[in-house]
Write a protein that binds this DNA or RNA. Sequence first.
DNA 1: TTGTAGGCGTTATCAA
DNA 2: TTGATAACGCCTACAA
Lengths: 342, 342
Amino acid sequence: MQKQPTIRDVAQAAGVSVAVVSRVLNPGSGPVAAATRSRVNDVMKTLGYHPRTAARELKFGPPTTLGLLLADVSNPFFARLADQVVQEAHARGIQVLLMTTQEDDQLESERLATLIERRVSGIIATPTGNNLAIWKQLQDLGTEVVFVDRSIPSLPEVDVVSIDNFESARSATALLAAHGHRRIGIISGPAASTTGRDRIAGYRQALETAGLEQDELLIRHAAFRGPAGGDAASALLNIEEPPTALVVANTAQVTEVLRRLSHAGIDIPGTLSVIVFDDSPWTELMTPALTIVRQPIDLLARHSVQLALSNTQGKRSGKPNVIRVAAELVERSSVARLQFSK
Amino acid sequence: MQKQPTIRDVAQAAGVSVAVVSRVLNPGSGPVAAATRSRVNDVMKTLGYHPRTAARELKFGPPTTLGLLLADVSNPFFARLADQVVQEAHARGIQVLLMTTQEDDQLESERLATLIERRVSGIIATPTGNNLAIWKQLQDLGTEVVFVDRSIPSLPEVDVVSIDNFESARSATALLAAHGHRRIGIISGPAASTTGRDRIAGYRQALETAGLEQDELLIRHAAFRGPAGGDAASALLNIEEPPTALVVANTAQVTEVLRRLSHAGIDIPGTLSVIVFDDSPWTELMTPALTIVRQPIDLLARHSVQLALSNTQGKRSGKPNVIRVAAELVERSSVARLQFSK
DNA sequence: TTGTAGGCGTTATCAA
DNA sequence: TTGATAACGCCTACAA
């Protein structure tokens, strides 16, 4: 284990001053004779010298680091988001510090503290919904905060990138109605989440347009984690007049709900038609292939990174950026056309 | 956008010296009067002071950061690994810098360069197989390198954490043989990868034990990315005497292979029995539920983090740590018992 | 119990 | 074209 050479070691070995080495390191920061440059470069190579990021960061402001604070990377949706964010960031030469909250606000606040201490230039996050004071502080500190997928209603001044939740749920519901379904259930995120609220609103709108009765029993909110989604599904199937179609509008709960339906021996789409918010590759492999709402994860990632980086130059003046990208309804085979309806 | 207060601002506002503030910040580093401590704490709070990690890292050696270098986080296997690694690391108060290579050695070398400049204390990686010199340099620099899931044969001095690939493939193949299958195909990772080689070896061993003939046509290597897996599956089905059972031993290719089988209208397990290396939740949801080899991702993560962190205290002396955890064969419904065999 | 001063590795300013 | 030197923010002997 050799000890790391510093810029001074390089300077000494090359017979120049540290200033010259620094200039070689940062082309354009000053003149260096061609001969000197190549000599210094050689020395750096033989010594195995690498400039130390920590020292650089100390001197300048925000480092080239982005914080990515997700609920949970084992969820394929977040995983793919993370993948895209990382790629997008790397393409711009910046690094990603990945943190997870497990939907726990206590953990979230700890992670945020770390992020503050590291002086990351931006944070892309799926907020739990609490820690309002910290989010505000972050913005005051000049950190660019971007909420992705969800947001916090009481923090309207934060940038948001998400799909058009209202329209996505509306069109999914409308498709079911158009297939003759009269009793359409929906499982969505927590009532407190913007995502959940918007999707429910779109659902209601579709029912209204189709002239269908709204039954609160058919609307279920499920927490992002845990068995809530499965429980909601079971509950829905056990009401007096159960739904013939179901929209699973909570990405985090799709697998859980499907597992429950499968165990209950529900025939899809014979007994129950299903549309899910999740475009994981396996939705196509199931029997029947699932009709899905596809979220353009690449766009979500690209816009998030862009916002998290661009605004850094303290614009923090006008309104926050709210970017809504369109989701795509992909029809496959999990929706049945109802012949007879009461 | 307020400018960030420094330790000096806090000291001044509290009417003490920076040394005192520093001691408050790092309990145990020196005595502070209780009254002074609380006063300083108050000031820190009102000023919104946060010590700057970059400055701390500059003073001490390796920072509290780990590099996680994966091929691709959109692959559920890696995603769940990342999730666990992050949790494991956070539990120890250390952060994770996530980078991806897309199986591209050029990208890998760039990522490694950044990791070197950041002086991360350890790196957990799924190596592409190249960049040998850099990996060596990393170790010489005192960075703890841990390969997870795969390794590089020509770098035997690097720690490795993986499942027992030989045994996993052996038992999966043996199960098929026990069910009466005589023509068993296998799709595995690149021949150059340790993972692929070990799994093929286990497969051969099982065939030998069962007294079955080995046919090189039944052995296919597929690159980690791209359509290779699907092509291999198609090729297998088109040989003169196609297999009645298939082991998909390349986690990265499972979805691709299944998609191809599905599109080809192959009946599982009627026409083809299947065992896959992938314990994603959806393997249970498919029809039929897939028989799988379950990788204990949590153990892989825990051991990796542990190795990446523990050895930091320059032990670099004895042999490298090689940890093999057992994988579990989970029987479900994708393997048929053959009644008549030639 | 508290304060002073020097150094961590790098870049930038200003002379030479 | 190059070199000396002062920051950047924090920690830590060593003094007071």
